[in-house]
Design a binder for these strands. Structure first.
Lengths: 204, 204
DNA sequence: CTCCGGTATGCAACCAGTTGCATACCGGAG
DNA sequence: CTCCGGTATGCAACTGGTTGCATACCGGAG
């Protein structure tokens, strides 16, 4: 269970965040490798407050907004958890199950649907990849790292490595999607009266 | 929710399987991209039987063993679900959260623990990759596909594409692990009194 | 002034997945 | 004969995650 620890991390990075802030940040940075809905986040924050890991104060003005900060106990827990090992993440991809189902069923009418799903997957990978590459170009080009302390540079390098995981993941997803589409095209040239289609499949 | 459909697929591939058989097969083939415990499988089989997707008979001999088969309604459901789209799988990797936590905490004592976790991850990827490559060499070399019907060849190609997903995933995980280890070594040569360690990092 | 969209929080119900345990039958080793 | 490990099934409790809904406050457009 790492959601509370992801939240603690987020609070260490930027103290005095509200549940809403955290939810939005989960939609961008941390959300790339750990998703959470706002309900989950609010619930978890309440639990963490009860456990003494975080504390909250009402935001100035008469809103309902509450801002949280990480307490020493929370920090200690985060250190403990970070050092502790864990089992590798489970892979669960319904598209692969669908492909296997199509293979087992042996009905050729399904390949059209699978092709569509693969194309969608491909564009998703390409979009994610492009956004990651933009972040990399913006935040992790060598010039930006001159006037920093060693500790800052360390953290920067770590964050870059994390981003690289995302980039590699999307690249391999993109490459596989293309390979899969080529394989489907090769066996099922359903509206490929044009002989050029075969060539497309070859050089992909 | 794809567990019932993964089970239906498994039953279409090999009818007259018991819950135990299915659980074991999930530990090998399908389990590479969809894990399930035996309790989950038994519960799901009971639900599916209630829904009229599968039927079961007692196995010969006086054991408690029950063997399941897929009913036409189950097959129809599987076709329907395969054609239907779905959102891409969520990525949730605690190791990346841990790295981000280490970066935020800025405590250098954590990098040793992270290095150990990365090395473990690396060997896992290498092991998985090796086993996938063995399967690929055994089942999907070009010679094996000569005396087959077109439908069989189609299914074979599909299964190969699925395996390729696993291979690419493990390759990119392996490559990233190496990259991450090199990055950690570069910044934190904690017991690298030996200058050779720097070389190790370079050619990884 | 009122409605709307964005900010902000939260409850309740449900579903999926995990963990721990219990049961039973079988065959072989000791 | 008994114990043990492998086959085989299942219940119960719990945790994590999703979905749907409700509430409230604010500022700007109409």
């Amino acid at each position: 269970m790492s959601l509370p620890h992801a939240l603690l991390t987020s609070l260490v990075e930027r103290p005095s965040s509200s549940g809403y802030d955290l939810a939005r940040r989960f939609d961008s940075s941390i959300g790339f490798f750990w998703r959470a809905s706002h309900q989950q986040i609010y619930r978890e924050l309440a639990r963490m407050e009860k456990a003494g890991w975080v504390a909250s104060d009402e935001a100035p003005g008469h809103t309902r907004k509450r801002v949280y900060r990480c307490l020493p106990a929370g920090r200690r827990e985060l250190v403990r958890w970070t050092a502790e090992g864990g089992s590798p993440p489970v892979v669960r991809d319904a598209l692969l199950v669908r492909m296997r189902a199509a293979a087992a069923l042996g009905s050729p009418d399904l390949s059209g649907a699978l092709e569509a799903q693969l194309r969608e997957r491909l564009t998703q990978h390409e979009a994610a990849l492009m956004s990651y590459r933009e972040i990399e170009a913006r935040d992790f080009t060598s010039e930006r790292r001159s006037a920093e302390s060693e500790a800052q540079a360390e953290a920067e390098r770590m964050r870059h490595v994390i981003l690289r995981a995302g980039i590699r993941f999307e690249e391999s997803g993109r490459d596989w999607s293309r390979e899969a589409l080529a394989a489907l095209d090769a066996r099922d040239p359903h509206d490929a009266h044009d002989p050029l289609d075969a060539l497309d499949a070859l050089d992909a």
